[in-house]
Design a protein around this nucleic acid. Structure first.
Lengths: 342, 342
DNA sequence: GAAGAATCTGCAAACGTTTGCAATTTACAC
DNA sequence: GTGTAAATTGCAAACGTTTGCAGATTCTTC
């Protein structure tokens, strides 16, 4: 105690130069010692490390970043393109974000999160990259920004995107084969007896469009109708929109492919409220396999995205790109998870 | 096109000095122009701004941060204290994080997310603060790190914590009155006919402990039993643990206060599987009022935390602390949201 | 004990901005 | 025209680190 109660933060030793003075060496030596370089004498290093520990010294990352031209920070951008309610709310994205944080931490990187509203700031990606604050960027969701991302990809290597893969695209993407997933969903619905299908969700986001397209492939092949019932993702609007759809098409639909599990769960709740039997009268297949899919009543049949593999893939590819490699995209196979709704 | 296809990023103009050369002025002037200071001639400023736009120039945030001794970045730390599975997974925290991102973006700050495992790195908070990368820090959840946070709070103003408020604590906290919430939950359970209560969840985290304590207040006052049935938060362990508890105490419990909605939903699913009538035989009250609470069957009665107000409060208080003010803690009132499970 | 090699250490110049101060230009009034 | 004030601009020193280079020390080996 006494005069050392500032210990741990501050304590007078803020810079490498302060510490150098204390240790009786030059700043350069301190820097080398703390960086664990082999060039510095073992004794000297120990003394310096001890002093650093005692005074709770941490080298300034800004200065270090400036000098080394790298920051140890990966930017994660979430573009909020089409949802009017401009909030990061999607459960799947948030889960992915959590896993990314885990993965990046393990690899020694920090994560800088930026919510982005392309409508009011069309320069978002260049701004993020050009800020000098991040070594690379992961974009979660292409939203309606496919073209902008493509533009940037040509001149900037360390970027990986979560989303849908299109033939011939230039940016490196990690994501599920949404179209295949859509096919699997429709096939399952039909296999469990549905003949009048509906796709429940917005078809504007490119991932959802692909899911819909996959379902449509199957519907057309089997000669079955597939309607689109558009909804938003925001939980508060969702319920009402679904209710409206169900009222309009009561009895005319016996198989629902929901764009996400969240939507499926809301739909299940609404059907239950109306006393519609699931899967007796109406079958439902979701998408994502979020934890919630296992807790609905009845438990939700869904198309599983391997979100862990996704997060790992994103970070893997990004780090390889940081090292200069030109990586290919990674398309993960979806998996039909049969529970009780179809 | 042509030689300008590097436009937008790079294009040869990387530094303020490059731009200054192009504009025929000194770097200082460019800096002032871009900062929007009034000291620079309108014409000059326009010319500089035009050039900057044309070349997609962005000042380097690292350099700027170093020089100005502030970064425009707020750190958000999520300590993972007691959960063995070291992952950011809790839905409530992730939702709060999303709202924080929204709120901070609106105020012009960036968000640096750091997952933290106190067990393997007991110096986490000092490290984060001392990194020089962030202007202030928001800690989401006290976990088991109450004391460490207290230690830091004495010497570091710009920190706000989401969590539980204890009498006489020194760090600024924003959070729900968990004890009161616990009381409300127990009261509701008893009011709807329960006489054998159980608290479902871990009581180690201080927030949960307070919820339990509140319920215990009421149970003791009413002369009613309150058991603790410990669980983890991770969705995969959760189901089995709950199943085990339900098997052990089948019939002996008629009112369950779940530490979170997630736990409550899992419990509901498990009860449904067993054919136990809710709220007929067993009543349930959750905590949080996550979107899921509205989608369970039957819809979940729960104690609502005003998460929007929480996010806003956290950012508000932090910014005031950044300005030097010594703010008080903010304790939000919980609200009983009666749906159908109690 | 001296020459040469091998280790360590210090010096000083970066990294790209911002900003106090001083110098310059312009505007204005006489 | 001259003098003074006001408006702009340039200069150069920071911010705290890292690192190439050269100088200084220590260790080998004869």
């Amino acid at each position: 105690m006494g005069e050392s109660d500032l210990k741990g933060r501050g304590g007078g030793v803020r810079t490498i130069t302060d510490l150098a003075r204390l240790a009786g060496v030059s700043p350069g030596t301190v820097s080398r010692a703390l960086a664990g370089k082999s060039l510095v004498n073992a004794k000297t290093r120990e003394k310096i490390e001890k002093l650093a520990r005692e005074h709770g010294f941490r080298p300034n990352q800004m200065a270090s970043g400036l000098r080394r031209q790298k920051t140890g920070v990966i930017g994660v951008a979430i573009p909020l393109g089409h949802d009017v309610r401009q909030q990061i709310s999607d459960t799947f994205f948030m889960t992915l974000l959590g896993l990314l944080a885990d993965e990046l931490t393990d690899r020694g990187y920090d994560l800088m999160l930026r919510r982005v509203v392309p409508l009011s700031d069309e320069d978002w990606l260049d701004r993020f990259i050009g800020s000098g604050m991040i070594d690379g960027v992961i974009v979660i969701g292409q939203s309606d920004q496919f073209d902008r991302i493509e533009d940037v990809a040509d001149g900037y290597l360390p970027m990986v995107v979560w989303g849908n893969h299109s033939e011939g695209q230039r940016h490196c993407v990690v994501g599920t084969d949404n179209r295949l997933g859509g096919r699997m969903a429709a096939e399952r619905l039909i296999a469990s007896g549905a003949r009048n299908l509906a796709f429940l969700g917005d078809t504007a986001p490119i991932e959802f469009a692909a899911r819909y397209a996959g379902a449509l492939d199957v519907a057309e092949r089997m000669g079955v109708l597939l309607r689109v019932l558009p909804t938003h993702l925001a939980p508060d609007q969702l319920g009402d929109e679904i209710a409206a759809h169900l009222s309009t098409h009561a009895g005319a639909i016996d198989g629902i492919f929901a764009a996400t599990d969240t939507i499926a769960a809301a739909c299940l709740a609404e059907l239950h409220k109306r006393g519609v039997a699931v899967p007796g009268s109406v079958r439902i297949v979701g998408f994502d396999d979020l934890p919630i899919a296992n807790q609905t009543v009845p438990p939700l049949t869904t198309i599983r995205q391997d979100i862990h593999a996704g997060a790992r893939g994103l970070v893997d590819l990004l780090l390889r790109r940081l090292a200069g490699e030109e990586t290919e995209s990674l398309v993960l196979p979806p998996q039909l998870k049969i529970r009780a709704t179809a």
